[in-house]
C-alpha cells in the first residue's frame, strides 16, 4: 500500500477532465483543465463555509443559540481584526478578508481529516491568494491615493541621506510580500502534513518487525497525536496570520503614509 508515502497526500488526481488547450496532444503538453480532488475540496470548503454560516444564523435569534453564536463570533472576530488593522475605512474590504480567512481556515481544517486533500498545501493556491491581496493593495492604493501611494516607500521622518538606502529596502520588502505571504502558509501546511505522515508512518512500519518494533511504535504514535494537536493549531493560526497580514497590507493601501 502507498500508506506511508508522505508525498502521496499532495498528489492531484483528475476526477473528470474538462479541456486541454494547446499542446501537441501528448500527455502533459498544453494547458490541461480538469475537475480534480483539489477542486472538489475547494468546492467543499466554499459549500461548508456558506451553508454553516447561513444555516446557523438563519433563525436570526435576538438571543443567539450556540450555533448562531459561533457564526457571530467569527463575524465579530474578523470585523474587529479589519477595523483594528485597517480602520473603519478598511471595512469595505471586510468581505474579502472574511472570505480569505474562512477559505484558508476551512481548507486547512478539512485537510486535517485523514484521507482528505489539503488545498492550501499547494504553492500555486496560496500564491494566487497572495497575489489577489497584493494586486488589491496596489490597485486600490493607486486609485485612492494616486501617486501619493508611492509615499509608502519613503518613510516619514527619515533623514534624506538615508533615503537611498531605505527606499530600495522598502520596495523589496513590499515586492516580497506575496512571496512571504504564500510561502508561509504553504510551507507550514506542507511541512506539518509531511511530518505528521512520517511519524504516523513509523507506527505502521514498526509494528510488523517484531515485539520491540511493536512496543516502540508507541513513541511515534504519541508524537503523531501531539503533532495532530499542533497541526490543528497551525491550521487556525496560519489562517489568522494570513488574514491579519492582509489587513495590514490593506491598511497601507488606505493610509500609505507611515
Amino acid at each position: 500500500m502507498a500508506g506511508t508515502d508522505p508525498i502521496h497526500q499532495f498528489v492531484i488526481e483528475d476526477i473528470f477532465p474538462i479541456a486541454t488547450i494547446g499542446g501537441d496532444g501528448t500527455e502533459g503538453s498544453g494547458l490541461h483543465f480538469a475537475f480534480t480532488n483539489s477542486a472538489l475540496f475547494m468546492v467543499a470548503t466554499v459549500a461548508i463555509t456558506f451553508l454553516y454560516l447561513v444555516l446557523s444564523s438563519s433563525q436570526k435569534r435576538l438571543v443567539p443559540n450556540r450555533l448562531q453564536l459561533t457564526s457571530e463570533l467569527l463575524y465579530e472576530f474578523v470585523a474587529n481584526m479589519v477595523r483594528g488593522s485597517a480602520g473603519t475605512e478598511g471595512m469595505k474590504f471586510f468581505p474579502l478578508v472574511f472570505s480569505l480567512f474562512t477559505f484558508v481556515l476551512v481548507g486547512n481544517m478539512l485537510g486535517m481529516i485523514p484521507y482528505f486533500f489539503t488545498i492550501t498545501s499547494h504553492i500555486i493556491v496560496t500564491f494566487a491568494l497572495s497575489m489577489l491581496v497584493f494586486l488589491t493593495v496596489i490597485i486600490y492604493g493607486f486609485i485612492k491615493n494616486g501617486p501619493k501611494f508611492l509615499g509608502l516607500f519613503v518613510p516619514a521622518g527619515v533623514p534624506g541621506y538615508i533615503l537611498p538606502i531605505v527606499t530600495p529596502i522598502e520596495i523589496i520588502s513590499f515586492l516580497s510580500r506575496p512571496i512571504s505571504l504564500s510561502v508561509r502558509l504553504f510551507g507550514n501546511i506542507l511541512a506539518g502534513h509531511i511530518t505528521l505522515k512520517v511519524f504516523t508512518g513509523f507506527v505502521v512500519t514498526m509494528i510488523p518487525i517484531g515485539f520491540f518494533g511493536a512496543a516502540g511504535s508507541i513513541l511515534p504514535l504519541l508524537m503523531g497525536i501531539a503533532l495532530t494537536g499542533l497541526e490543528f493549531l497551525v491550521a487556525a493560526v496560519q489562517a489568522y496570520v494570513f488574514a491579519v497580514l492582509t489587513c495590514m497590507y490593506l491598511n497601507d493601501a488606505i493610509h500609505p503614509s507611515h
Binding site: 492531484i12 483528475d14 480534480t36 477542486a39 466554499v46 468581505p95 472570505s99 477559505f103 500555486i124 493556491v125
Partner: peptide
C-alpha cells in the same frame, strides 16, 4: 491550470 481555474471559480463564489 486546473488549480487556478477552480480556485478562481470557488473563491469568486465564496466572495
Amino acid at each position: 491550470p486546473s488549480q487556478l481555474l477552480w480556485l478562481a471559480i470557488t473563491f469568486a463564489a465564496l466572495y
